[in-house]
Design a protein around this nucleic acid. Structure first.
Lengths: 207, 207
DNA sequence: GTCTATACCAAGATAGAC
DNA sequence: GTCTATCTTGGTATAGAC
């Protein structure tokens, strides 16, 4: 599949970089690191394949950049949720922020793919380091006790897994899938269903 | 990399199949679906690459077979733990069985890779179905309430993630990694450290 | 049942024009 | 800054011998 690209408008390298990173996040989130081709990323970003390589050097460096960006956004949104004065406990507010991130298609899934690739030296390093940063945030900044922080992470991993396997596809047809999704996502489930299955897939968003 | 294979001893197809599945489980667990080459599997199994393809038809079918086998073993070991008369609550006993499976290098990690590949039609189907089977087991056979079953799954996913990212590599050097691993794995941590980091990496197994 | 040899394609990366 | 063209490698799958 060769990318058909109309003579693209020039833009500052920082802008283009971010554009490609966004596109790459979606594709990596869907297909994983090895399963993603630089050509697919290029197509999603609307640029040529060699240009993607040109910007980031190698596919691995691109993936690492995606991971770092995702971790930055994640912690940024956690910090915002912590600072905000919305109702609920600290854990609840950060949890809500996490679920909101699930709608940023690919962000948490790209992370997830990175997390299970500890055997790749570079990727593993970034994954472990990033994961620990989140753990430290939960304990030191959000003030959660160790057990609660681990619990938070555990449920985050469950959500990632459910989304990654597209369990939402079985939401209509399988009562157990429905129950599990409801248990894991609570009030945020309608949001996720809307994002993944398109508008109108849940009973009602607000009425 | 071409596989160097000494004139291999013949064996029944079922035996050889299981042998290749075991090897494939390890490699897929390490590198994921797309990241694994049939040649690497062949090398690990000590057979030729075309033979691996010959047995399973395609790489995808091989991976699906790995997933199904892993799910069978998982549920089998859960049922055994449930039936056994070892001490502890049902949740504890099944949890212990799960952690024991972590030492079967690759089994849970292959599953994990399958779980986050919901976009692949076949793999996604098997993943969702298998995951729901486990959920149903926890509720219907083990008798856990929905919330506890979800909690169990959540912590399972956290363990898979920690093992997949090789967090055990940071066990010595990073106090937070140590704490997180201890919190997630409890009394089973020494077992895991022995498997991943080699004997003697934890304080003591028994004394 | 198992191998060797190989066809064939996909994908990452490079060269170089504009 | 961005593209087209292309080199090169590696990897799945097939053919066919033993």
């Amino acid at each position: 599949m060769t990318t058909t690209t109309a003579p693209t408008t020039r833009m500052a390298s920082d802008e283009r970089r971010e554009l490609v990173l966004k596109a790459a996040t979606v594709v990596f989130g869907q297909r994983g690191y090895a399963g993603t081709t630089t050509d697919a990323v290029a197509a999603a970003a609307g640029v040529s394949q060699p240009y993607v390589v040109r910007i980031f050097g190698t596919k691995e460096k691109l993936f690492l950049a995606v991971l770092k960006r995702a971790l930055d956004l994640l912690l940024g949104s956690f910090r915002a949720a912590l600072a905000s004065d919305s109702p609920g406990t600290v854990g609840y507010r950060i949890g809500a922020a996490y679920v909101d991130l699930l709608s940023d298609r690919g962000l948490l899934l790209s992370l997830m793919h990175g997390f299970v690739l500890g055997a790749e030296p570079e990727i593993g390093r970034v994954a472990r380091c990033g994961f620990l940063d989140v753990y430290r945030f939960l304990k030191n900044e959000a003030g959660l006790p160790a057990a609660e922080a681990a619990d938070f992470l555990a449920h985050g991993m469950l959500m990632n897994t459910l989304v990654g396997m597209r369990m939402t596809d079985d939401y209509e047809s399988d009562p157990d899938a429905r129950e599990l999704l409801q248990g894991a996502l609570q009030t945020k489930l309608p949001l996720l269903l809307e994002v993944t299955n398109g508008p109108g897939s849940s009973a009602s968003t607000a009425s």
